[in-house]
Amino acid sequence: MTHESELREEYSKLLRGFLESGDERYLYDIENISKEFVRANIGPDYILEAHLNTLNKIVSEFPVDKAVYIYNKASEPLFNLMVAYATAYHDYIAMNEERYLREKQLADELNDANRNQEMFISIMSHDIRSPLTAVVGYSGLIQKWSNDDEKIKRFAEKIEMTAMEIDRMIESIRTYSRVKKGNSKEDFDEIDLKVTLSEIFEFLDEKIQVHGTKIERRYRTDRDYMALGTEFLKNAYLNILDNAIKYSPKNSIISVTLDDTGSDLKFGVADHGDGVPDEMKEAVFERFTRNDKCGIKGSGIGLAIARHAIESHGGKVWIEDNPGGGCIFYVTVPKA
């Protein structure tokens, strides 16, 4: 016998018991069985059918006047059943909804974790491979020039620097993972964006020289632009500026602005490159999307990380067209 027909049989017995004795006990048992109906996912139409079938069978055993009395009396257990059924069903829906929300939240967290992991693997395999190539290359050169102390010293220095670069990358991955987990309070410092920018220009100096880029600072140097930020926010600005230099024609001008008139600090970088078409303005912040241009190095991961970092500081980043050609990257972060 299936569970459905068992429950139906059971209900028939209880209904008959109540109609014959009028005992409250049957109503209590009917209340309990109604929960079983909900649990077994048996619909009210099916229960009603079971009720009517049983009732008809019982009624057929009695003369007409008694039959009417039984019919009337049978409304009470049915009503009890339906109230208990509806109450249990209401609980059941609420329980499922809560479970669904909980599962959805877990699934989202898991997806996030997976995406992060993929990103780490990407960084590892793409960005760390190129400095490693340098390490291998210089090691080979040391073996080849094993008699030339001067050369060996220079190559060893290169290897040391490259190793330190790898270390910085690993550190940034760790920071990134912390940023994604939610910045802890101690990671935040008050930073003056004007100072941060100066540090970045110094860091990028060689690249700026090689590219012949002219940096135009369009903000006041006698003023503080204070924000609450982590090392990772600084890296995001670095990344965007690095990007602008990379995508600009040689010997062109890049304008950098800082605006503190609103509630946020707005940073802008305008270049005179080829610009970013509208359909790519969002996509460049996804991983491995690059506004394809031959001869440009990088794994296409920098802007994705930058956006994560900026957003985790409560900020925004987006691209607009530069009226004079090229594009403008904007970054806003809340003031400190």
Binding site: K35, V38, R39, A88, D91, Y92, A94, M95, E97, E98
Partner: peptide, 12 residues
């Protein structure tokens, strides 16, 4: 809370 149970019922 709807649906919460520790007693093994169909929700408290």
């Amino acid at each position: 809370t709807d649906g919460h149970t520790t007693g093994g019922g169909l929700g408290a």
